[in-house]
């Protein structure tokens, strides 16, 4: 009983504490770099699309709001033919970013994306792609992936040996 009264008293004292409310449109909020907001597709240091259309973000998405189709250019470099996020379904959980093996898909600190029509919340690749490397500057998937997709030749990537000369029997 006494503890109840004490609780009530303590709660009552909050009347004289500082308000935590931020008066949003007039006052802007300070968002952290790792804040999970708008989803973007980034580019690698050479300006190429980072997304290789591996479908892992789509598979990780708990609300299945990512749909894409992978395709290849003449060098064998994969990129998404279309990449669609239905933001009217997105819950900004960030699993897609975690799943992305190429740092292509990133959630950025921007949440001001309300629309009057739901249809306008369906973002295509053109709406998602930004001309920036986002949070991971300097990373280029094809430099470490081994295969030759027009970015570097076989054996020229990071931590790779020159291609094997299969005609040679030397160790």
């Amino acid at each position: 009983m006494l503890s109840h009264l004490r609780t009530m008293w303590l709660v009552f004292l909050h009347l004289f504490h500082k308000r935590e409310t931020i008066q949003y449109p007039e006052e802007k909020i300070q968002l952290h770099p790792r804040w999970r907001g708008r989803i973007v597709l980034t580019k690698d240091p050479d300006g190429g699309e980072r997304c290789v259309g591996c479908y892992l973000c789509a598979a990780a998405c708990p609300v299945d709001c990512i749909a894409l189709q992978a395709t290849e250019d003449e060098d064998g470099r994969r990129y998404p033919e279309f990449f669609r996020i239905n933001f009217s379904r997105c819950i900004f959980c960030g699993y897609c970013e975690e799943a992305c093996p190429t740092y292509a898909i990133q959630l950025i600190p921007d949440f001001e994306m309300a629309e009057y029509k739901r249809q306008d919340l369906v973002f295509e690749k053109e709406d998602l792609l930004i001309d920036s490397q986002g949070k991971y500057p300097g990373y280029n998937f094809y430099k470490v992936a081994g295969l030759d997709a027009g970015v570097k030749e076989k054996g020229k990537g990071d931590n790779e040996e020159e291609p094997v000369d299969i005609k040679s029997l030397l160790p």
Binding site: F12, H14, L15, H17, K18, R19, E20, T21, Q23
Partner: peptide, 16 residues
Amino acid sequence: LIWVERRLLAMWQDRL
């Protein structure tokens, strides 16, 4: 009381 209650609750929760 609709207003009073909401305001008071907010005050006690450090809100507006």
